[in-house]
């Protein structure tokens, strides 16, 4: 067998409902990314020459002064498609605020596993030709964050930004719409299936989200029971509180899931049914289904002692079993 899978890397719980997440994304629309960027050089013939040679553009109005003078422009102009090049950051890239709006948006998307990025399309609009001597400045604004979309690459959100270019007089000379998708690659870092909770069980999952594994206790007769239910089978009381588990247990049974493979999990996936140690009398054996952590697959055997820890995984907090005595395993 291969090495044990670590908990998925997207182990962050944003704590937001889908609607709250959507609203948080939409709050970025209209926000400017960083300060205005000034072009390091004015529009100049040497850069135009390099561009035209690289692109194979032989239009004489860009480099032949005589031909340009005879043209509708009356003088040399720059190729319109060079718009972005005049303001582009150098080889070291832009110096961005590490907690600017774009970084915040990126981090928010990452909490749901939307960590991969692909540029999807780019459209430029030209208001006028640029001439040698123009000095540009550019401002970027987030103009749209899409609803969640399922694409061939995976599920994600399209982010559209617009860069507006102005000259020294503040007059707009052109703009560029740039769109990317931040997505969750298929089959990797998706959220795990979320538990369906009822009025009888939601308290248990709330405690788990807060990092605690608890067991229901009848507040009248004191018997412990799990999974929780509305009534104590021993005394029929509807009143309950809960106690924390001891934090240890042993493997009652286990499986290794190979198929089907669904997003949010690493396969082969060991799943253990743990006899959970509790302090008190129980209605029935307290058992919980968990994944393993920090444990070689061969160490997972029936009867193996485990330590139980709550860790983040797949967008939730979950109990994990760590086998503490590997004598029974081949490793």
């Amino acid at each position: 067998m291969t090495a044990p899978p670590p908990p998925p890397a997207d182990a962050v719980d944003d704590g937001l409902t889908d609607e709250e997440f959507h609203n948080a994304l939409q709050a970025f629309v209209g926000r400017q990314i960083g300060p205005a960027m000034d072009a390091p050089d004015e529009v100049n013939v040497p850069m135009i020459r390099h561009w035209c040679e690289a692109m194979g553009d032989t239009n004489p109005v860009y480099l032949n002064a005589e031909a340009a003078a005879a043209s509708t422009h009356g003088e040399l102009v720059a190729p319109p498609a060079m718009l972005q090049a005049w303001v582009m950051a150098g080889i070291n890239g832009p110096s961005r605020d590490t907690d600017g709006p774009y970084e915040q948006l990126t981090n928010l998307l990452a909490t749901r596993g939307f960590t991969s990025v692909v540029a999807t399309n780019c459209e430029q609009t030209y208001d006028r030709y640029l001439r040698p001597g123009d000095r540009l400045s550019m401002v970027t604004t987030i103009t749209d964050v899409s609803a969640q979309k399922d694409t061939a690459l995976g599920t994600g959100h399209f982010i559209t930004t617009q860069q507006d270019y102005v000259d020294a007089n503040g007059q707009r000379v052109g703009s560029m719409v740039f769109r990317i998708i931040r997505f969750r690659p298929r089959g990797t870092t998706a959220r795990r299936p979320a538990p369906a909770t009822t009025r009888d069980t939601n308290w248990w999952f709330e405690a788990l989200a807060a990092g605690e594994v608890r067991v229901q206790r009848c507040s009248d007769c004191g018997l412990l029971r799990h999974p929780p239910g509305p009534m104590c089978p021993a005394c029929h009381s509807l009143n309950f509180d809960s106690v924390p588990i001891e934090g240890t247990g042993s493997v009652h049974s286990f499986v290794v899931v190979h198929h089907p493979q669904v997003p949010g999990f690493e396969y082969p996936l060991p799943v253990v049914l743990v006899d959970v140690d509790v302090a008190g009398e129980v209605v029935r054996p307290v058992r919980m289904v968990m994944n393993t952590a920090d444990t070689e697959p061969d160490a997972v055997v029936v009867g193996a002692p485990v330590r139980i820890e709550v860790r983040a995984a797949g967008g939730q907090h979950l109990a994990f079993a760590i086998v503490t005595d590997t004598a029974g395993g081949a490793s």
Binding site: A196, V257, F265
Partner: peptide, 18 residues
């Protein structure tokens, strides 16, 4: 995930991949 008692039973197994 519908919050009925019958569906809620999967809450004890699905998050671990069962």
């Amino acid at each position: 995930n519908e919050a009925t008692a019958e569906r809620a039973q999967f809450s004890w197994t699905s998050p671990a991949g069962l």
